[in-house]
């Protein structure tokens, strides 16, 4: 079967820091795959390599069969990336920002409009889209960026902590959107998160990362069974302790 993302023996070294140490996993088409792990485990580094921002020190990464090192430009056509810490141009209005981003993917005016309308729904920002981004709260900005990443219905959405900084209701809303998108538009999602509830609810499969490698992998249900835990939080604590 073809994978949406295939990561093999991935290593990344920053000077003295070994951020990724032989990381391997694969994401099936149309699934939501979650990377979880303690701070500094290498989640962001892995997602950045998949998104062609960083080059692997060694190993192989393919996105829909496209090599991220050999064909980065092709890879960029099929994915969108939501950085962990991201901003928008402060002097553009929310709508202008979305239009700016949509223009890179839209094939015509009609599609452009469609993308922006879609983003308006996802972000739930309504009338506030007319305001400049610099007047937004942290959560509003995040919703704008999540909407940006999903509005074009990319084949792969790489989302680094999509709901960080969002309140309970908006996190819930964003999760619903992600879930709906995957079903409706055949979007594959690769995300990272610190919120175990979210991961349990959203992800078809998760990989537990520690010190740059995977120490446990499977569907949330499987993992809970395997580690005799009531929830993923417990699994996380147990596995990290063992490792």
């Amino acid at each position: 079967m073809d994978y949406a993302v295939r990561v093999e023996e991935l290593r990344k070294v920053f000077g003295d820091v070994q951020a990724l140490n032989g990381l391997s996993f694969s994401v099936d088409k149309g699934e939501i795959f979650g990377l979880i792990g303690p701070n500094g485990a290498g989640k962001t580094t892995a997602l950045r390599i998949v998104s062609t921002l960083l080059l692997p020190t060694s190993g192989k990464v393919e996105v829909f069969g496209l090599d991220v090192v050999e064909q980065p430009e092709e890879v960029r056509k099929v994915l969108t990336y939501l950085p962990e810490e991201a901003g928008a141009y402060p002097n553009l209005s929310g709508r202008e920002y979305l239009e700016f981003m949509a223009k890179f993917k839209a094939r015509d005016k009609h599609e452009l409009k469609e993308f922006v309308e879609e983003a308006a729904v996802i972000s739930g920002l309504g009338e506030r889209l007319k305001d400049k981004v610099k007047t937004y709260s942290k959560g509003m900005k995040r919703r704008l960026l999540v909407a940006r990443a999903l509005m074009t219905k990319p084949r792969l959405a790489v989302l680094d902590e999509p709901t960080s900084g969002l309140d309970v209701l908006h996190s819930y809303h964003v999760r619903e959107i992600i879930k709906r998108y995957v079903k409706k538009h055949e979007v594959t999602v690769l995300l990272s998160s610190h919120n175990m509830l979210e991961v349990e609810y959203l992800c078809d499969r998760v990989a537990l990362l520690n010190k740059g490698r995977i120490i446990a992998e499977g569907a949330p249900e499987e993992l809970k069974e395997k580690f005799e835990s009531a929830n993923l939080e417990e699994v996380f604590a147990k596995v990290v302790k063992i490792a």
């Binding site: 950045r48 960029r76 994915l79 950085p83 810490e85 901003g87 141009y89 981003m101 890179f104 993917k105």
Partner: peptide
């Protein structure tokens, strides 16, 4: 403003 990363993953 942390917009560079997003810019660099666009299909341009």
């Amino acid at each position: 403003e942390k917009t560079l990363e997003t810019l660099l993953t666009l299909p341009i």
